[in-house]
Design a protein around this nucleic acid. Structure first.
Lengths: 222, 222
DNA sequence: GGATGTTTTATACATACGTTTGATTGTTGC
DNA sequence: GCAACAATCAAACGTATGTATAAAACATCC
């Protein structure tokens, strides 16, 4: 078992990588308990004992999926967000929300990657394991903090910290929900998640984040 | 096995009810695959064979949890929503959103019930089984349709159907996310989900739904 | 080319699973 | 009291699970 620094985590050990790939796909699709080591090693075309040899045990393999597969993808998404934001010129609430929604909904991941990514993390959100803490510390927290600073600088500056945090969570709520609840949304709107619909989704999230329901013409806020 | 009309589904058969209660708690907490029939019957203090006697098999028990426990609770929430909306007098976007958020976040369920309710359904959203179709047809769809009509009647009437649907989903996104992602939100804001915080949450959701980020003073919408 | 260290293999182990069975207890109507 | 039915029980079934082990295959270096 090599635990060297693994400068480049891909191609280091073909078997280990195949196991990680197949394990991720299966964990995302069916959840931790519904996936056996035998199914994983079967899919990865390697021996049953390979998981315990390379990762010690099943729980460790699950954790390693998050460490070496999920986290780098989260980094890619956030990189995409920051680049898109920088390319957008002005820093405004609109551009922040648009870059964020764009990165998450139509960003650098393939459809299949996005499905895996969100299914894995929604499993953790629903029933947090050790992996959750890692992901919260290394992915959610930095993104949240950077959004906090970005938005604080472009929103009226008398805004309370808690209120700003809730606003950020609300944007997140939409971005994640429109990924998470795809089956429901597709079935109720009749729309596939093709490029055109995703573009409309991003537009909608930006508009809703800026204007809410668009109810200003009929009433004032409470 | 009695399959009579079950006018009142409680107290009909103590063992059956105990199994349903414990099964729901365990399924919500750990998920379908992680919960064995032995754990359920152990918690319900009855014989291992009771599940297969009363429900045929495990999958059927899971389905029955949704039919006889989850759905009635969804009905209670929606009843609370409609009553609160009626009591509110005027039908406006604010009152619709407030009643909805109120019903879901601080509504008729106990904290424990709410936890179960949302964990069960988020399991289904993540990996839909047969139960999902039932719940979508009998709970989500009617609520969605009634919200659709309510909001259509109080929003500018040139609004496209798809746009209105997305707005409704966005409100749902917040309501559900603020329940779903409790661990994350508590940890990032430092707030417990006590009555005071839930009240602020409802206020926030209403305000965000009406005014978005509150960015109007610094820019116009795209 | 033989020794050394790493990876893969086949097989075994103990435990846990969902489901079935057949006997036993409890309950109801006569 | 007894027949008919409903519910509970202990025990067993075959299968699947996570993990361990020891032998085999492979790689690398002197």
């Amino acid at each position: 078992m090599d635990d060297s620094i693994t400068l480049n985590n891909a191609k280091n050990d073909p078997t280990k990588d195949r196991i990680l790939d197949e394990a991720e796909a299966l964990f995302a699709l069916r959840g931790y308990d519904a996936v056996s080591i035998r199914k994983i090693t079967g899919a990865a075309n390697c021996n049953l004992a390979a998981v315990n040899y390379h990762f010690g045990n099943k729980q460790n393999l699950y954790l390693e999926v998050f460490r070496s597969r999920w986290l780098p993808r989260a980094v890619r998404i956030q990189k995409c967000f920051r680049e898109s934001l920088a390319a957008n010129g002005a820093l405004t609430p609109s551009t922040v929300v648009e870059s964020l929604a764009q990165a998450f909904i139509a960003g650098p991941l393939s459809e299949e990657e996005r499905r895996r990514h969100h299914q894995l993390i929604s499993g953790e959100l629903a029933k947090p394991t050790e992996a959750f803490k890692m992901v919260a510390d290394q992915a959610f927290r930095p993104l949240f903090d950077s959004l906090f600073e970005d938005l604080r600088s472009v929103l009226p500056d008398d805004i309370e910290e808690e209120r700003l945090a809730l606003k950020i969570f609300s944007v997140f709520a939409m971005v994640l929900y429109f990924n998470f609840a795809r089956p429901l949304i597709s079935s109720f709107t009749g729309c596939d998640y093709d490029a055109a619909f995703k573009e409309r989704l991003v537009d909608h999230i930006v508009e809703f984040s800026i204007n809410g329901l668009g109810a200003k013409s009929k009433e004032t806020s409470i």
